[in-house]
């Protein structure tokens, strides 16, 4: 299978109290199309920073990331945004649904940004897949945490992304709800052959992935 994500010599330093602080140090790895990779490690080990760099949300101090063969940091901000639109979907710990939009409208949004004509139909179908047809016209504040994360999953998969980035997707959910969400995530993963890259504390979730990348103090261990 072809390599879809490649990181080489990835480093991130920030200034903290006037002193340089290394968050990531010389991280390098490859992920093949259809694989699922769990990035695990203790709090402050640099997991979320790595995810942000892999998705081109942040800029590294050193190193490169290639997404589907494109050097992410050779592109400008808008170029990286375009790459994300073509390739990536996201699921976040805090769901990040737009509060003024209904469940259905939240799922429609990425399609609308891509200029899809049948956004409503496709979003409805995906919402049905996550079992939330009945809640399509509810605002996020009227949904439970599990329901909000299922809407977020539908939003992430509705564009059929090649890569899905997930940051602690079960972090805000209880064990049972978290398990349901994970099941859904892997169902989409196998149905759409999506590459999964997720950050988690949840060992059970990490074990369901094909590979694990363990970080400690910004280094791969």
């Amino acid at each position: 299978m072809a390599v879809i994500v490649q990181a080489a010599g990835l480093g991130k330093q920030v200034l903290s109290g006037g002193q340089p602080l290394t968050i990531l140090h010389e991280v390098g790895f490859t992920v093949r199309s259809g694989e699922s990779l769990a990035i695990v490690g203790a709090s402050g080990s640099g997991k979320s920073t790595l995810l942000g760099l892999l998705a081109g949300l942040d800029l590294p101090s050193s190193g490169s990331v290639w997404l589907d063969g494109a050097d992410l940091f050779a592109l400008d901000e808008d170029g990286r945004a375009r790459k994300r639109r073509e390739l990536a979907g996201f699921v976040f710990q805090s769901f990040q649904l737009l509060p003024a939009l209904t469940a259905l409208e939240n799922v429609m949004l990425p399609l609308e940004l891509q200029g899809c004509r049948d956004a409503r139909a496709r979003a409805s179908a995906t919402l049905k897949q996550v079992g939330l047809s009945a809640r399509a016209h509810h605002l996020p504040k009227h949904l439970s945490g599990g329901e909000q994360q299922r809407v977020a999953l539908a939003r992430a998969f509705v564009t059929r992304p090649k890569i899905l980035f997930a940051d602690e997707p079960t972090g805000n959910l209880d064990a049972d709800t978290g398990a349901q969400v994970i099941d859904l995530l892997f169902e989409f993963n196998s149905a759409q052959h999506t590459t999964l890259i997720l950050v988690t504390h949840d060992e059970a979730l990490a074990r369901r992935c094909t590979r694990q990348l363990r970080l400690a103090a910004g280094r791969v261990v």
């Binding site: 808008d78 945004a81 994300r84 639109r85 737009l98 940004l113």
Partner: peptide
């Protein structure tokens, strides 16, 4: 203030600055 998160999400979804 209330649209910062929404904008960040849209940027993740690939919306460009000009867009």
């Amino acid at each position: 203030a209330r649209h910062l998160d929404g904008c960040a999400v849209m940027r993740c979804m690939g919306a460009q600055q000009g867009q």
